[in-house]
Design a binder for these strands. Sequence first.
DNA 1: GAGTAAGCGAGACGGTACGTCAAGTCTTACA
DNA 2: TGTAAGACTTGACGTACCGTCTCGCTTACTC
Lengths: 199, 199, 199, 199
Amino acid sequence: MRGPGRPRSDQARDAILDAAFQLLEENGLERFTIEGVAARSGTAKTTIYRWWPGKGALAMEALLAHAELTVPTPSTASAVADLRTMLQGIARSFAGATGRVVASIVLAGQNDPATLKVYHEKVVEPRRQRLRDIIERGKSNGEFRGDLHVETLVEAMYGALYTRLLIRFSPLDEAGWMDRHITQLLEGALPRPLCDRKA
Amino acid sequence: MRGPGRPRSDQARDAILDAAFQLLEENGLERFTIEGVAARSGTAKTTIYRWWPGKGALAMEALLAHAELTVPTPSTASAVADLRTMLQGIARSFAGATGRVVASIVLAGQNDPATLKVYHEKVVEPRRQRLRDIIERGKSNGEFRGDLHVETLVEAMYGALYTRLLIRFSPLDEAGWMDRHITQLLEGALPRPLCDRKA
Amino acid sequence: MRGPGRPRSDQARDAILDAAFQLLEENGLERFTIEGVAARSGTAKTTIYRWWPGKGALAMEALLAHAELTVPTPSTASAVADLRTMLQGIARSFAGATGRVVASIVLAGQNDPATLKVYHEKVVEPRRQRLRDIIERGKSNGEFRGDLHVETLVEAMYGALYTRLLIRFSPLDEAGWMDRHITQLLEGALPRPLCDRKA
Amino acid sequence: MRGPGRPRSDQARDAILDAAFQLLEENGLERFTIEGVAARSGTAKTTIYRWWPGKGALAMEALLAHAELTVPTPSTASAVADLRTMLQGIARSFAGATGRVVASIVLAGQNDPATLKVYHEKVVEPRRQRLRDIIERGKSNGEFRGDLHVETLVEAMYGALYTRLLIRFSPLDEAGWMDRHITQLLEGALPRPLCDRKA
DNA sequence: GAGTAAGCGAGACGGTACGTCAAGTCTTACA
DNA sequence: TGTAAGACTTGACGTACCGTCTCGCTTACTC
């Protein structure tokens, strides 16, 4: 049921993606070269160019293939607890090798909108959706305000993650950071009225 | 009181920084080359390498020299209003050419910690400090809760800016987003108690 | 009476040789590629490699199959006249597309002795033999000296042809040059004695 | 009196031409690669491309720089003797390494008219001129016929050389070949009249 | 004012990687 | 078994920049 011709070698494909991911971890994208991937993977440069248009796309696919992007989606009775679990999972993965690779991808994406678009579709959007779902659940069960703007909350939560990853205000693995961040996002900055629930 | 030898040419220096900034705007950092800067500025590569260690440092200095990074620090009676003014100013500057250059620099910094460090010291930290000052003022005058964690709020506010700049969740010049973002950061996500101040 | 399996396709063979000859005419051997022949002929590279060991051999066979190398062998009473007829025929064919292809083949042969050997056997030797025959006839009937060294004359005659073809001292289609060349080869360079037959 | 900038390195130039000549001798032009020359000479590919447009031109210059193309121009009382001396010298040089390189050059020239043109100007034409001079001298002093067509004789003499080099009718170092060839060119092929000077 | 010490432009140098082309081999589906 | 299709490794192509290195020339300060 397949056309004629030698079928694509999965062995080559895997070797390329493995090598690409390793090199991305080791060097970052700046010193990530197609030539290097070819050498490390034992394949030919042409084979790489046959299947990927450039380093951005290759790095992207290497990330998707290898990184543990599949942070578990928690689903307990408490939306707040689920938020904490999920975001801390992402923070953990960003703090390690995956984070370095993600940073590379985003970097590549600046001059390669196609790659950034794929990253959005495959990584960012699915996660945002899961976050949205949890928040909506929180709105339904009264954990959150009914007039909460979901997108804005999502953005604020992700924003801190990506900013620590890329701008490095402070380390991603700082103890208690994520917890404190979430708490304050939820509680806001304004003074509590006298009859505050915590009063 | 200066040693012997021909003094450094300010004309060359300016021509280099001008050319660098232009090329950064036009091409992003990926296609930003020392060779290109030399050609555009009419100087010799040697001259560039004499004064800057690499493209990261040059780009950094070109940014600092040209971009209107000096957003005015507002100082009215209302800390909340000042926050809005300041952050909207930054958003505006990020939405234009400066934003593209900043993105380039920050991402280049992923593989060039020295450059990123300079960016922190010269750009990020001063702004964060101004933000902290405003927030502290708000705490003092009762606009904000007394137990507010200032750093966390600063990070949340900047996070959204940088994330829109780098990850491009949504455009930086979307009408009203900054306002909405700030409002929600201040109000939090939890339900308002019955005796809410707005009730 | 043939073994099992699909028989060789003459259609493919012809398409390959046609395409090869066309490409040889168009580009010369330098830019003559097996890949190009496969594309132009609509066959697979595999098929070409199954039947020919390399580009030299293929070009050779394409030449033999298509070029009008079969200059008519004249045979009149006058050996001298026959020589002129034959050599002028070859000159004419060398002056056109065939000449370019022959030049390609011969020069390719510099690094591919097998191909050059085939060219000798299939093209050069038969023609030289015909030339020898004519000259021998001339010796028999008194047109030429009895102690003439035939091989040397053959070589002198061919030499001029190939040299114009390959070194391009002068164009192959220069009017009258072949005639003049033959005449002088026959008459020699020495002064005519007083009782010269023309005296 | 030289412009600014680092002067061209003669060391690099010589290393390149040496390496090129060696590789030409070893492999012929077919397997002669710029990459190989760079490796052998210890220079960078870019340096080669800076000074030579392609392999044809490089091979050409390597030949001119190294080959003993300066066959001595004899000048004795006898033009015939001088012809023999000169042509035998060329034959000797063609029979060795120089010959292989010359063959390569001519080959390259088929698809690179500029290279062939240089070869004409620098090698072929000077030699032809020297041959012409000798022949004219022979005409003047009565060794040759007064109505001898000089160009044709030159061509016939060279033709045999290049043809043996390229077509390989017979080896260039066959004993006595050149002598016999010259003799017959001079004496012609026609029967000697009764009062022939040799009679 | 001669000497000396930088800075400057130009541009050649050894390199690395680029993205492309073709070579020749191999593996499939189909005839 | 032959053929078209097409993926594979290999190796060279010619180009773009890298960062370094002479050069000749231009300013200064210093003796």
